[in-house]
């Protein structure tokens, strides 16, 4: 089946008639399934450009739909709905409403790079998936995924101190995503560690979660990175027209209040 027809044969678009006769011919039952005709009018022509403007999305235009990415994909193997090739097709044709059907799973790309390895056109599908997930969040289609929250906490710590301490990242992540730190499997894991570790090591690990490890002489790098990140964020907001969106929303709210 050609990929662009995939959306036509969803169960809700298939019609089977109980009793129907057309020009004297009985067309009822499963053997005469009809497909609901559909006219797409809500193309988002800016979508490809917007995603291409985000880091990682640069090479989406190179795709010629061979499907090597989906064929190689780790996540596709456990969830057939996860389909990078299809999403790249939807983005390039501007089929926003179709893409939004899968908005809650796109962030699940595990960055194994099998797609990037397989891609004959250097699209870097892995990076396109990340750019798409960010686009969905920036546009307000989805809340920040757990993955993005983790990335934010992690990067913030790297930018502040130059280094990471995994215990701290883990604690903050569980807190921000509203998950209990005392998960049964996590307790098993800690018990496994405690069994063999000498006390001195435990003290060292405990201290590390209180006193973050630091790269000395990092302040120069920190300032430089912060300035750069702020610049990039402003750049992305402009590319996605987010400031205008906010202004429009504000004007509408004001008009509503005046009424």
């Amino acid at each position: 089946m050609p990929i662009h027809e995939k959306s036509l044969i969803r169960p809700e678009n298939l019609k089977v008639q109980e009793n129907l006769e057309v020009e004297g011919i009985d067309v009822s039952g499963h053997w005469s399934t009809f497909i609901e005709s559909r006219v797409v009018t809500d193309y988002n022509e800016a979508m490809e450009e917007e995603i291409a403007a985000l880091p990682g999305g640069e090479f989406i235009h190179r795709c010629w739909q061979c499907g090597s990415c989906t064929n190689a994909c780790t996540v596709h193997a456990i969830n057939p709905e996860f389909n990078p090739r299809y999403w790249i097709y939807l983005i390039r044709t501007g089929m926003e409403s179709e893409l939004l059907r899968d908005k809650d799973i796109i962030w699940q790309c595990v960055s194994c790079n099998k797609c990037t390895y397989a891609c004959p056109r250097d699209v870097v599908p892995e990076a396109v998936m990340k750019a798409t997930a960010h686009w969905l969040e920036l546009k307000g289609h989805t809340p920040k995924s757990h993955s993005t929250i983790f990335d934010d906490i992690f990067s913030e710590q790297v930018i502040e101190t130059g280094k990471i301490e995994d215990g701290r990242v883990l604690k903050r992540f569980f807190k921000q995503t509203g998950q209990a730190l005392r998960q049964p499997w996590l307790e098993d894991l800690v018990k496994g560690l405690l069994r063999n570790l000498p006390i001195s090591m435990l003290t060292r690990m405990g201290l590390a979660t209180l006193v973050a490890p630091k790269t000395s002489g990092w302040s120069g790098a920190r300032d430089a990175i912060k300035e750069y990140v702020a610049e990039q964020e402003a750049h992305h907001r402009t590319a996605l027209g987010l400031d205008e969106l906010v202004k429009m929303a504000e004007t509408e709210l004001k008009a509503g209040a005046a009424k």
Partner: peptide, 25 residues
Amino acid sequence: DNWNCCGAMEVKNIDPKLQTYLSSR
């Protein structure tokens, strides 16, 4: 001496070039 984080799997999702910088340092 005074090494820093390479960016791991996370910083590239904020900005790939930032990861390139961290590793280059």
